[in-house]
Design a protein around this nucleic acid. Structure first.
Lengths: 216, 216
DNA sequence: GATATTAACGGACTAGAGTCCACTTGTCAA
DNA sequence: TTGACAAGTGGACTCTAGTCCGTTAATATC
């Protein structure tokens, strides 16, 4: 249903699988470790790239060779947790489908899980999304990409299964359901409006439930 | 229903209405004119504050005294058009209510108008929103503020009028309906996905119509 | 083991947003 | 008219993201 996306191989899918030089790989690991430590100590937004480079004992050029922007660095730091999240979501879908749950129910559950994921990784996601959704040549939009693919696939399954009201623009609705999880809006709702995660999740579920077929 | 917000008086609501010094007022006008000209010629994103200051023949300090950020400058440039948009929306609401249109219909119309407004002012809005929704002490969130007030008021009227399905979180839905109009998402849909304005407007209308009461 | 190739490296550099502060000037009250 | 002072002014300064390019060194081949 949803393609598994492995961030670590997205760039280097070339024929001969040319491997990274040993020193480069060591630096990559060093940089990631260093960034993680500094981010944990001072907060993602308060640590600048020059500081990371210095703390890791490499030049800025090296840092930027490994990670084309602060956003990509942050994305790399979330990589394993994104993979885990994806894998768990897939497992849940299979299990729920087997148990006969409707696709709309699965969509609601997925969005709820995404609310908590977004909350946990808000600082990193903020940097990732500052890189912009639009720049399709970078991997920065990968989170949104697979989120959309997932939501879209569930909506299509729901439609095929006769769960959806007629006349809906499924692609548009996929985007619309995900919009409130864009980090700026999410943070505004959470910190500005003071909405709890539960309220946000319930709100999204409410929208999903409206998509169900109604005997008008 | 919706408070009319006048950006020009938002800062100086103090008792004695202390007036701006003449030279300062002249500079404000000069800066606005200059910025408008440069933005038109080179594009909002390609003109930096230092250039505006230089072209206007003032120092950067002066520029930043008048407008605390590039976003505020952009907001000031949209001021009159925002007021016009608001006034027209209000007039339309009155007329539609008189003609017996449902509040949900009015909400759909309002969102459609907002799609076109957002499209027309996308470059300026991008700068405004980069200032951040969260910083409530600046006027940068005014556009979202009045948009939300309007949507929220319409939803409440609809609820009072028995047009809404039961059990909805009206405030949350207000935010959710506006999220796809956040500039990053809007641009992604328009430029990245290639959705037409008509499709976006129709998508939003579709969501609004789902809010209607269903005989489940 | 020597050598050529090519990636990796580092840090000076650019660019743009926003801050600071010493200096100037319009305004108002006496 | 004048003088005090709040308001206004200019531009050097800081901070951060991201780029460039001359130098260095790991690897692969002979």
């Amino acid at each position: 249903m949803m393609p598994r996306i492995d961030l670590t191989t997205i760039d280097e899918g070339s024929p001969a699988e040319r491997h990274e030089r040993a020193d480069a790989a060591a630096n990559r690991a060093l940089i990631l470790q260093t960034a993680e430590r500094l981010f944990a100590e001072y907060g993602v937004a308060n640590v600048c790239m020059a500081t990371i480079a210095e703390a890791a004992g490499v030049g800025k050029g090296t840092l930027y060779r490994r990670f084309a922007s602060k956003g990509e660095l942050c994305l790399a730091l979330m990589d394993s947790q994104m993979s885990t999240f994806q894998a768990e979501a897939l497992a849940r879908f299979r299990q729920q489908t087997r148990a006969g749950a409707s696709y709309l129910t699965q969509l609601g559950d997925f969005l709820e899980a995404l609310v908590f994921f977004t909350d946990r990784h808000a600082p990193l996601l903020a940097e990732v999304q500052h890189g912009g959704l639009l720049r399709t040549e970078t991997p920065l939009n990968l989170p949104h990409f697979w989120q959309f693919m997932t939501v879209s696939a569930l909506l299509r399954s729901a439609a095929r299964n006769g769960e959806l009201a007629a006349g809906l623009d499924i692609d548009y609705i996929g985007e619309a359901l995900l919009s409130p999880l864009q980090i700026d809006i999410f943070r505004f709702q959470r910190d500005g409006r003071g909405y709890t995660l539960e309220r946000i999740a319930a709100g999204l579920r409410g929208l999903v439930s409206l998509l169900g077929e109604h005997p008008t």
